[in-house]
């Protein structure tokens, strides 16, 4: 696709959204049998699966911590998740995303309850649009809760940015590619604390403040959908034939 002349026309983005609008969002908790907890999230054309195993015995043993569990995170993209086939296995990008995703999630988990154990989070991108790391974190937080792991809060994440001089919520891949700025943010909604922040591009101080407040607004909506997904998972499903 070639760069469009304008990414925002008459206040609307190319997909028809207003600048402060999320793409369609769908979250489902408890989608895998083997994992201790799992979640599936669609945001726009993103299709992302997260699974949690643990707390479980830490291998290799020398990585055990005597007074706490260790949270581990692996972000991975399926070879067919993007236009050009991605070679299987970790690359520098996925290693970095795994690290920042882990650091985004760790503040909410009561790791101290499980000395010597490991909690493993696997984020699997089945279909990538823009915002896979933030959508992955959103899915992982639901999967952690679905695994019954004690948490202070959930973590909701979204990207904001600047496109054609306008601050926008939840970038599309076109906006990510041709926009000026991309800023993924994850927050603990209850205490309004930021647990992930990355940015590339250009913001003035004022634009940054505006973008951050828009990220909070988007995360609030995502947080509501996360809680709803967890409630739906356990809402009464009595298969009574009679």
């Amino acid at each position: 696709m070639e760069k469009p002349e304008r990414l925002i026309v008459d206040g609307k983005r190319l997909d028809g959204r207003a600048p402060d609008e999320l793409r369609p969002l769908r979250i489902k908790a408890g989608v895998l049998k083997r994992a201790d907890g799992s979640a599936y999230v669609e945001l726009g054309r993103n299709k992302i699966l997260a699974a949690v195993y643990g707390p479980r015995e830490m291998h290799p043993r020398h990585l055990q911590q005597p007074d706490t569990a260790v949270l581990r995170c692996r972000y991975n993209m399926a070879p067919f998740s993007v236009e050009e086939r991605k070679r299987p296995g970790p690359d520098r990008r996925s290693v970095e995303i795994s690290k920042v995703a882990r650091e985004a999630l760790e503040p909410v988990v009561f790791l101290e309850l499980y000395p010597r154990a490991a909690i493993d989070v696997f984020i699997e991108v089945l279909q990538a649009d823009a915002g896979t790391r933030t959508t992955g974190i959103t899915a992982a937080a639901v999967a952690l809760a679905d695994a019954g792991i004690p948490m202070r809060d959930l973590v909701a994440a979204v990207a904001v940015g600047k496109v054609d001089g306008t601050i926008v919520l939840d970038l599309t891949s076109e906006e990510d590619q041709w926009g000026t700025t991309d800023m993924p943010v994850a927050i603990m909604p209850r205490k309004k604390l930021i647990t992930l922040l990355q940015m590339d591009g250009h913001f003035t101080g004022e634009e940054f403040r505006q973008a951050l407040s828009l990220a909070f607004k988007g995360c609030e909506q995502i947080y509501e959908a996360q809680k709803q997904a967890l409630r739906e998972r356990y809402s009464v499903k009595r298969e009574e034939g009679e």
Binding site: A51, Y53, R74, N76, P88, F122
Partner: peptide, 18 residues
């Protein structure tokens, strides 16, 4: 043809090459 036994699929699968 390539297959990945992803660690999200089973507690016995570990990250790494096939």
């Amino acid at each position: 043809v390539n297959a990945e036994l992803l660690p999200l699929a089973s507690p016995t699968f570990e990250p790494g090459p096939p």
